[in-house]
Amino acid sequence: MKNGYIKVLVNVAILLAILVAMDVTMGWAGEKYMRWLNKKPRNGDAALVNYSLNAAVPDVAILGSSTAICHYDPDIIHDSLWAWQKKDYSVFNMGISNQRLTYDYYGLKCLLDRTTPSIVIADVWATYIGNDPSLSFYAFMPYANINPNIKEMLKSHNQLTFMTKSNLYCFNTEIIKLALSAFKSSGENVYLKSKVEIKEVIKQTEKDTTSLLPLSIEEFDAMIALAKDRDVKLFVVMSPTLRSSDTTSLSYRYIKEKCATENVPFLDYSNDEKYYQTHYFRDRTHMNYYGAELFTKDLMKDIKKHYAMRIKLG
């Protein structure tokens, strides 16, 4: 029987040794692979997350979720700035599907570790500070042991467990998306290319009863403080949707008041009747190509107006 115990222990030890070796190798290979992947931006959510967190150094950055991806056309922003300033600003849309305030804050932190952009546009919505971010951390797990900002993010949201020390565990699910990124050439924003039109307009005014999350308030405040500290011109923008935003909600009021107090431009297009047209949207939340074109041009006009009033672009 004693032999049996020893045999079991030896088996467990050998298996653990193999797993640890694979885990370490995976971590090493993963980091190398992601560095390689960052040499040029590629399509696909995983590649975009990787590039945004670890490599992007734009002059103008757009932060946000799928609405940021769909509503802001970097080419229009680039051309508009060129026409105005005669300077070649690089513009990068860092929007990632299903992300919320937490990503915007830590995405900005990662960005400021590498560069100081001139303009950052944060795309927000009425429940921005009331949304529970806990469902959207999967995409960031591969960076838990690589990127200190992401490690801090996961820690502050209680996502760092004993298991996240494992590279294998951290790459769960995302590995396939990251692997597929290698085969996707750098390309245009597929969402922006969408010309699908929504068939009917159902304008809804949804009463928002979401309460504010203390951690989200902390992150929103920190994001504004961080931008001011590094002298980055931050624009907080609510882009159009087919749902009217509840301007009486706690979250909306907090965003508006905080921006006013901190002297951060808050541009709200969410209730602008101009955009309530079926041919501007591909669904009730996301604009299509025509909508994005119109909205981005309008936004740039307002940004220029804002600069004309305040400061000159540095």
């Binding site: 050998i14 298996l15 193999i18 797993l19 694979m22 494992s166 294998l168 565990y169 790459f171 769960n172 699910t173 590995i175 396939i176």
Partner: peptide, 15 residues
């Protein structure tokens, strides 16, 4: 050993 280890790795990556 390798087949069991690979299966565990597979579970950790794709489960």
């Amino acid at each position: 050993y390798l087949s069991i280890a690979m299966l565990i790795v597979y579970i950790l990556l794709f489960g």
